[in-house]
Amino acid sequence: MSVNNLHPSVESFKDFVKKHPKMIQEVRKGQKTWQEFYEEWYLLGENDVTWKKYGDVEVQQENDSAESKQSFVSQMLQAVKTMDANAMNQNINKVSNTISTIQGLMEQLGLSKAAGPQNSNAPNSPFSFRKD
């Protein structure tokens, strides 16, 4: 038989493998052979629960990302529920006061942009040439 004239069961197995890409990864890692997969597929059929773990990677990734998004949202909602508004307001005020204190120190030490030397008569050009 040539490659174009494969047995119908082999053709349907190839289609099945395309729907279950993790099988390819296992064969490449040397954990199983195509013969073993084919025999299991032939005996168990396509609808056996064994094949779920070899299922479509993209669908599993989408399910995992949806679950992680839901868990993140639920964690955020739980944090908001347990948050004390008064304590949060006090913390924000403390941070604001700290920032104001740091800005005041910087101004006293001359580290702010406004405290730098401002010479309005200084030429814009580094060269001392004058225009006629």
Rank of each mutant, 00 (worst) to 15 (best):
4 N>G: 06
58 E>V: 07
113 K>Q: 01
82 T>A: 07
61 Q>H: 09
89 N>P: 00
20 H>P: 01
47 N>G: 12
64 D>R: 11
127 F>P: 02
110 G>R: 08
71 S>Q: 14
75 Q>H: 11
113 K>A: 01
27 V>Q: 02
15 D>Q: 09
110 G>I: 06
9 S>P: 03
13 F>L: 11
80 V>I: 06
100 S>P: 02
109 L>Q: 11
47 N>T: 12
53 K>S: 10
99 I>H: 10
24 I>M: 06
93 N>L: 12
64 D>S: 00
44 L>W: 05
7 H>S: 06
54 Y>Q: 09
93 N>G: 04
44 L>Y: 03
114 A>K: 09
72 F>E: 10
98 T>F: 07
97 N>M: 13
81 K>A: 09
2 S>C: 06
115 A>P: 04
4 N>I: 05
9 S>R: 07
38 Y>A: 02
80 V>T: 05
60 Q>Y: 03
129 F>K: 08
26 E>N: 08
90 Q>S: 02
30 G>I: 11
109 L>A: 09
48 D>H: 10
120 S>H: 09
23 M>T: 02
94 K>M: 11
44 L>C: 04
101 T>K: 13
15 D>E: 15
3 V>Q: 15
38 Y>R: 05
118 Q>T: 12
107 E>P: 01
54 Y>E: 13
41 W>M: 07
89 N>M: 13
36 E>Y: 01
14 K>N: 05
99 I>R: 13
110 G>H: 12
54 Y>P: 06
21 P>I: 10
60 Q>H: 11
104 G>I: 00
60 Q>C: 03
64 D>G: 01
17 V>H: 03
32 K>F: 11
62 E>D: 09
51 W>F: 03
52 K>T: 12
127 F>N: 14
49 V>S: 11
25 Q>N: 05
83 M>L: 15
126 P>T: 08
44 L>T: 04
56 D>N: 14
40 E>M: 10
68 S>Q: 15
9 S>C: 11
53 K>G: 00
27 V>Y: 02
16 F>V: 07
29 K>R: 12
110 G>K: 15
47 N>V: 00
90 Q>L: 13
104 G>S: 12
22 K>L: 08
93 N>A: 14
52 K>F: 02
106 M>R: 10
44 L>P: 04
19 K>D: 15
71 S>G: 04
126 P>R: 12
123 P>E: 08
6 L>N: 04
64 D>I: 05
96 S>Q: 15
84 D>M: 07
124 N>V: 04
71 S>W: 03
131 K>Y: 10
12 S>P: 01
6 L>C: 06
7 H>F: 01
39 E>A: 00
74 S>G: 04
14 K>S: 07
31 Q>L: 11
8 P>M: 00
68 S>Y: 10
90 Q>R: 07
11 E>H: 03
20 H>Q: 01
65 S>R: 11
116 G>V: 03
120 S>E: 04
77 L>M: 06
131 K>T: 11
25 Q>L: 05
127 F>S: 13
113 K>T: 05
107 E>N: 14
